[in-house]
């Protein structure tokens, strides 16, 4: 964003506090370092939380009185679904920022978010199928929420595919930003229409209910896992951004310095 502004003006901006923050946010080496220092503590915390939550949910909670033990899948199914949906908004908002303010780092964040979101959506779908088989006797049900998750997966894959199709990566970023914004406007409409469509066609034999009355002993590990998945998303996002930054800036001085430091020890 500052590349188009002359050097004299750049000096002026540096004195203003707010602008210097934006300037830092737009500065690859600063972002690379800060992401690294966040990851240094967030990554171990995330892995610990995931392990504790998984063991807690798998071994230390009592089974659901209606579904038995199969409900334990909830501790990965619901968090991955929640974070996958939130991830789309992260991606779209990053895309909007990169479009409006031409902030390159937002473009990096948007590109980094897409594959993680797709992976989490896939986890949600896969574990949903594994949960459905013992509980409702079917791998796949055209339930409103399952169908919506499938559509979310398509939306993510569309963004990834569009990015890969462009040779010019700057244009790719802007095109993906527009696509994810269009998707963001559409997601509520799609979800509402799928919801309504399902209520029209709902088969009488299967009832998806009972989630409202969740016992607190089951709720705490679930909340922990939701938090852990958000942290996981953040970690993956930062790691992807760091890799992307190194690739995009491979010819700059700071990356060369980094390489030399890396080789020193």
């Amino acid at each position: 964003m500052f590349s188009r502004i002359g050097a004299a003006q750049k000096g002026l901006y540096n004195h203003a506090v707010m602008w210097s923050f934006f300037h830092k946010l737009g500065s690859p080496p600063w972002l690379y370092d800060i992401a690294g220092s966040i990851l240094r503590w967030l990554l171990p915390v995330t892995i610990m939380a995931l392990l504790v939550g998984a063991v807690w949910g798998l071994l230390f909670t009592s089974p659901d009185f209606r579904q038995g033990n199969s409900y334990r899948i909830i501790y990965i199914h619901v968090p991955s679904a929640v974070v996958a949906l939130a991830g789309y908004y992260v991606m779209a908002i990053a895309g909007a920022v990169s479009l409006i303010w031409r902030m390159k780092m937002a473009d990096v964040a948007m590109k980094a978010a897409a594959p993680i979101g797709a992976a989490l959506t896939f986890i949600a779908l896969f574990t949903g199928a594994l949960w459905g088989k013992p509980t409702w006797g079917t791998w796949w049900e055209w339930d409103a929420r399952i169908t919506s998750m499938l559509i979310l997966l398509f939306l993510y894959l569309g963004v990834v595919a569009l990015y890969e199709a462009f040779d010019n990566k700057e244009a790719a970023g802007r095109a993906c930003a527009i696509l994810s914004l269009v998707g963001m406007v559409n997601i509520p409409i799609i979800y509402k229409s799928v919801d309504w469509w399902y209520s029209l066609h709902q088969p009488a034999s299967i009832k998806f209910s009972g989630e409202s009355a969740i016992d607190s002993s089951m709720l705490y590990p679930l909340l922990l896992m939701i938090g852990a998945f958000y942290a996981l998303f953040t970690c993956c996002l930062l790691m992807n951004m760091r890799a992307e930054l190194v690739q995009r800036e491979s010819r700059t001085a700071w990356v060369r310095k980094l390489v030399k430091q890396d080789g020193a020890h």
Binding site: I151, A171, V182, N186, I189, S193, W197
Partner: peptide, 30 residues
């Protein structure tokens, strides 16, 4: 929208359906 995003690409044909079909869903439903 899909056509505009893929018009510069050599092989936009398959890609455009991947981008656009999910957005068609509400129209199909109603």
């Amino acid at each position: 929208i899909g056509a505009a995003l893929t018009v510069g690409l050599k092989r936009g044909g398959m890609l455009i359906s991947l981008l656009i079909l999910p957005l068609y869903i509400p129209v199909l439903i109603f």
